[in-house]
Amino acid sequence: MNLSVKLGSLNLKNPVTVASGTFGYAYEFAGLVRLKDLGAIVTKTITRNPKPGNPTPRLAETPAGMLNAIGLQNEGLDNFLEAKLPMLKKIGTKIIVSISANCLDDFIFCVKKLQDSGVEAIELNLSCPNIKYTGLNDKNKSVMFAQDEKATFKAVEAVRNNFKGTLITKLSPNVTDIGAIGKSAEQAGSDALSLVNTFTAMAIDINTGRPKLANITGGLSGPAIRPIAVRMVYEVCRHVKIPVIGMGGIMNSDDALEFMIAGAVAVSVGTANFVNPKASMDIIKGLKDYCVRKKINDINKIIGTVKL
């Protein structure tokens, strides 16, 4: 049975990846998960310079979901290249490095260095809801790249011109027409898309009257968002020809299959890693079992087969 899938020129041994920010730099899960069995590992987002992250509290639980406002805390590109990338390369699966920046120069700086370090694939995080981008648009307003077709195009184009490997663009669900943004990333040369990032959301402690997060708002993830994410993956797949990595509240293989039938070539497990560290392993097994049960010899045969 074939479980392998392709994201542009990147071959994954199976469609199951772990979502950026929910799996650290993988070594945190080393004793709990057979890391090399994963289709790919998407790292926590790194930035050119270290970022301290947002004030606390950074997490809140909501019905079937959670809010986070970590604020891309990371130790910066140089630390990543020295301390983390060598360990990741030894794992024996595909490594997708997630990067973010608030200006094009920093994006270009990062991808050049990553390319020189032998990184095969990059995920452009244009959609973190917890940091503000400035200096991109003419009017100096702060905007999320992935909320603007032109900004998305410019960022993807700038990176594309400086990176030969597989380029994945991560989209935000906090938009009116996600298909149009996906199309924009495709036209600018992205090899694949990943969606969705978290939904901007808010929770309030009724006893104190204060927001539950110090950042006031945060990103909602978990099963609560899954049906919206499935709809968005379905919509984007109708707009673009490049492969899509689907995610949003995937807890088990049934959830993963839903995204694949909607059109996703691969899936990412996110919040589920916190709830059940072995979720990704269970999902790989569940996909195999499904193929056996349905007498399917190639997992690619189910992608985008939703019957309308």
Partner: peptide, 28 residues
């Protein structure tokens, strides 16, 4: 004590500000 996500150091949800011996804040 703090609300936690993963519990194994991956999500950076449950952080606290720390100081060095000179009493200046060094990070989470």
């Amino acid at each position: 004590d703090e609300m936690m996500g993963c519990g194994i150091g991956a999500c950076l949800g449950c952080v606290i500000k720390t100081k060095n011996s000179q009493n200046s804040v060094i990070g989470y």
